[in-house]
Design a protein around this nucleic acid. Structure first.
Lengths: 321, 321
DNA sequence: TTGTACGCGTTATCAC
DNA sequence: GTGATAACGCGTACAA
């Protein structure tokens, strides 16, 4: 490694002009003779270009800012894995904003000032501030998770998910169903879309809906409260995390309802019984995100792109025991 | 945002030389009058410096490369959170190497060529290649998890962890114990250190040790095999993940042993029963890593630093029901 | 206090 | 095919 060698040093060592070296490096025409000389030197001194200088000259670097609401989630890390999978030339600058919109705003500004060449925002939950700063910037931007008109976006087909789960739950012939949902103003895709089909399937089945949040502990408390007064034989949670909270509650109350969850296929197989869950491939979603980003960056399509990802129901022990 | 404004533009607008603007920006002495003028312009055009040019000039950026073996783990994301917590001026370039040492090597080289100003390697499992490239480079480097002489490192006190668990398990008076361990050549801290105290506590208690790996599915199969032939009333796994695999195995065999796990406090509360586990604060470890990194970068201590992190046993349902 | 001139490493333009 | 030379945006001696 030693000290970094520059294009100038190479030029001196090879007795040529630095512009010749530059051409050599960028695939321009160079005589066989000088090519050989430079070949040697580059190999010997292990030359790597100075990326700052390149970026300064080219007015762009190949860095994409990735904003993620949390890192301790399989959904998120699977999407990141999907991004990685297809990536060749870009560097991802991953920033965890801890589900805090103030931090998210700050992160976007910081990424701006670092001249990233684009933005990918996972599980976006845009505030007005963020929306306007994104609209003001000309950075190629792709968001995931929320159906924001005017933005290039990839969303999950939560409507369909709810329909599929709705159809399935009817075959279970439950007598009393507990729905653990989240506030749809916080997350419309989850809180609203995901439950349309379910509620319609429950039209003549007794059920109760409780609004909680994405936190497992809160979900556990909410479920415990509901279950203490009433017995349910089927629990449907807006996310697997919420369902796991409910399982804890049921466990402590010595109840054994059936369960259906959504999304993070991770929990599904770590809990006992394994969880029936409607799953999305976040890995594929990550790949799709990167593809869409490239399209947006390289072709700058006139109108905002919108891609919908489908999922499927995986039936496990929690509904068949 | 519009187009980026430069120090030159400001100079022209304010009718001063760009060096004056530069001084203004870097806290040099500027007359009240010009200061006011520049103030206005900066505010109006929302100037932010071009980081490439700065880095090119200063020959260093404030970017720290962080190499993480996997992202879908609470331990890792907690450490990242710890790093974030103390950070003010630095940017972390997080690279997931998917527990693949070839990828890890490539990542280190890439970070090098991007002129990062330092390296933090989480849960390091250094191969010879990696060790030598790190030693050859002069980058300030801090590693975590493995007690590599010659490297600045933060390690977990696994010896103590094993002793504490050893003492505790004696109070449980088990009749037959299953140890699910990993190959100590793969991870000495876990496979060896963590089990010293346990094995000594088991000297006159019947027990069986099985070597599996960090993967939950493999652990499940290994446990199932062992449990099919023999009944255990206590299972100790090298990690929580492994223990969860064993819980699945036991569940399918309708057995209910007690369980003790290590480390990732995440699982502990998502499984039923909640898991007794020896826990380390990875969040604090992350903070300590950053502190150590700063020390190494700014003071370049002559000898490699070594910091040991302690943990504690958290007793939950899995050993008291 | 302010301005001039140059260098950081790279790429691009244009003569030769 | 090659080599000066000028830029990219910033910081900083040095001179005024």
């Amino acid at each position: 490694m030693n000290k970094k060698i520059t294009i100038n040093d190479i030029a001196t060592l090879a007795n040529v002009a630095k512009s010749t070296v530059s051409r050599y490096l960028n695939g321009g025409s160079v005589s066989v003779h000088t090519r050989a000389k430079i070949d040697d030197i580059v190999a010997k001194y292990n030359y790597t270009p100075n990326t700052f200088a390149q970026s300064l000259k080219q007015q762009t670097n190949h860095t994409i800012g990735v904003i993620v609401p949390r890192l301790d989630s399989i959904a998120q890390s699977d999407m990141l894995r999907g991004l990685d999978e297809l990536n060749k030339d870009d560097t991802f600058l991953i920033i965890n904003v801890y589900q805090d919109s103030a931090r998210e705003l700050a992160a976007i500004e910081k990424l701006h000032s670092q001249n990233v060449s684009g933005l990918i925002i996972l599980t976006a939950n845009l505030t007005d501030d963020i929306r306007s700063i994104l609209e003001a910037s000309e950075l190629p931007t792709v968001i995931q998770g929320q159906d924001e008109p005017g933005f290039n976006r990839i969303i999950m087909n939560d409507i369909n998910a709810g329909n599929v789960v709705g159809d399935y739950l009817k075959t279970l012939a439950p007598r009393n169903v507990l729905l653990l949902n989240v506030d749809d103003r916080l997350d419309r895709a989850v809180g609203h879309d995901r439950f349309v089909g379910i509620k319609s399937a429950l039209s003549d089945i007794p059920h109760k809906e409780i609004i909680t949040d994405f936190n497992m502990t809160d979900a556990k408390e909410a479920a415990k409260l509901a279950m203490a007064n009433e017995t349910f034989d089927l629990v449907i949670g807006a996310t697997d995390r919420i369902v796991v909270g409910a399982m804890q509650a049921a466990f402590s109350l010595k109840q054994q309802p059936r369960y259906i969850g959504f999304g993070q296929s991770f929990f599904s197989e770590t809990v006992s019984p394994n969880l029936t869950s409607f799953e999305f491939s976040y890995f594929e979603t990550g790949k799709a995100l990167y593809r869409l980003f490239l399209k947006v960056r390289d072709n700058t399509p006139a109108k905002a792109q919108r891609i919908v990802i489908d999922g499927h129901l995986v039936i496990r022990d929690s509904t068949i025991l």
